[in-house]
Amino acid sequence: MGELTFREQRRLRITRLADEFGLGTWPDEKADDWFAQYLTRYEAAWQTYHDVTPALAAEPRHLRLGVITNGDADQQRRKLQHVGLTGLLQQATISSEAGAAKPDARIFWMACSGLQLQPSQVVYVGDRLQTDAEAAIAAGLHGIWLDRRDTTSVTSVPRIRTLTELAPLLGPA
């Protein structure tokens, strides 16, 4: 009791936002329509960083490429398809299907299992230091932090600022 569905949460956020901006009280139907229009624009704007596709396409074919993502499986799969990555990936491990989300070690282990690799055989690159790189290391993988913002954070975790810097860290084939 007292819990809202995802749709009810979304409606509540939208109607509160409309009220805060002085747009009046919105009925559920108006909130749903606004969200549908927002979602269409949001999905149309999905894109990768400029270095993603070239870096993945340049990787030797003997590497098994996968992705771990927190979120709704349907949306994440549509996103991967929209940006053209599905053909480059052997595995997509998505939290809503996995029953665990980063930084939980179980999601990393599930991804390794899906690739038929032991965690010690896997390099995981992620853009969040704690949730991705450090969590991967804690799960037994080799974690690399993709620090696109070039922060001044001090860490012992290997760090790259662009995916073009990844190949030298992986070593020879």
Rank of each mutant, 00 (worst) to 15 (best):
G143N: 00
L141K: 01
D33K: 05
P168S: 14
Q81D: 14
D72F: 04
E29L: 08
A133I: 02
T93A: 13
G22C: 12
K30Q: 12
W145K: 01
T69F: 12
G99E: 06
R7Q: 14
P119F: 13
G114V: 13
A133R: 00
L115T: 14
A73I: 13
A58L: 07
L141A: 06
T5Q: 08
H62W: 01
T5K: 03
R128N: 14
R159N: 08
V123M: 09
L89M: 09
S120M: 07
Q37G: 12
K102G: 10
S153K: 11
W26A: 06
E97F: 13
G140H: 04
T152N: 12
P119H: 11
M110E: 12
T48F: 03
D33I: 04
L146H: 08
Q47V: 09
L80Q: 05
L89C: 07
G140L: 11
V122M: 08
G22R: 13
S156F: 02
P103E: 03
R10I: 10
L117S: 11
E134H: 01
A57Q: 13
S95R: 07
R148E: 09
Y49L: 03
T155Q: 06
S96C: 08
E134Y: 00
T93G: 12
Y42H: 08
T152F: 09
S113L: 14
Q118Y: 05
E3Y: 13
G87I: 04
G2K: 09
A92N: 05
F35C: 01
L56V: 05
M1N: 14
G114Y: 10
R78C: 13
W46G: 01
R61S: 15
T53C: 02
R106E: 15
L65D: 04
W145R: 00
G171K: 05
V157L: 11
G24M: 09
G114W: 12
K102M: 11
V67G: 07
G99W: 01
L56D: 05
T152I: 04
Q81F: 01
F6I: 14
T164L: 10
A139W: 03
A31D: 07
A138L: 02
D74F: 06
V83H: 02
Q76F: 06
A105Q: 08
P172M: 09
Q91L: 11
V122Q: 02
E165L: 05
V157D: 03
A133Q: 01
